[in-house]
Design a protein around this nucleic acid. Sequence first.
DNA 1: GTAGGGATGGTCT
DNA 2: GACCATCCCTACA
Length: 285
Amino acid sequence: MAGRKRKLLPSAEDGGCSSECKPAERNMDHREQSHYFSFRGPQGRLGTEFFHQSCIHLAKAFLGKVLCRRCADGSELRGRIVETEAYLGGEDKASHSAGGKRTERNTAMFMKPGTIYVYPIYGIYLCMNVSSEGEGAAVLLRSLEPLKGQPTMRHLRTARRKEGARLLKDKELCNGPSKLCQALNIPRSFDRRDLASDPEVWLEGDPDSGSDSTQPQDIVCAPRVGIQSHGEWAEKPWRFYLRGHPCVSVVNKEAERLSLPGNVMKRWSQSEVQSDAGQLHIKQT
DNA sequence: GTAGGGATGGTCT
DNA sequence: GACCATCCCTACA
């Protein structure tokens, strides 16, 4: 099979990104602040107790939380989780651990809640899951809203793209499970690490919590993506995302109609997203 | 903007 | 040898 030539990601194996973080890019400037929301700073690392939830509860609880990545040079990359999928293991035939099947690859799914499961997909991409309560259960992280370190994320994502390709917009940096692994430089070697205690990757509370934390009615429940071959299990509404958020990878309008929003005080509307030289601005209603 | 098609190689049977 | 929890590019509306 004649393949297209692509540049390899230089530091994908070592877990560090010092070679990717140019000094000028490490300086915080206005471009590194989220244009979607105000970023109020860390709310503290989420510990082991947070991950002790059932898979579906944890998948919903992840929404709004901030995934943080400390690079080898000390700089930080941050993104708010806006889309997840629950894979329950056991009866869930779409799960890598269906039927309790345990292999070298999926061992992390059977480890303690909060364990990172990184696996390769389609040969060239990686996906990141976090184990939950339940035998073989894990939550797939599908999309993030970039909050900090967008220039570095863009550099990491561009490394695999064709030379001369157009500049990626902020909302395109992490809007997919493999894209977020690229943008945050999550390597395969992070597999089986503990998200509650690892020094290089961790989870923090929603920086916007307090006045406008994620409300249940903001969450859309939809069938999971890319598992059509698994029959009835493909229909289970175990994908969760923030309604109207521009960083969601796949919008399901039918599912949005079915999950009525009710009295949503804060929503994100595509029509109010304005593009400005690759950056996005969004007004909240 | 969206749909369609091709790429890619690890994992599992 | 087939499958695959994806991504990117191109063409077209």
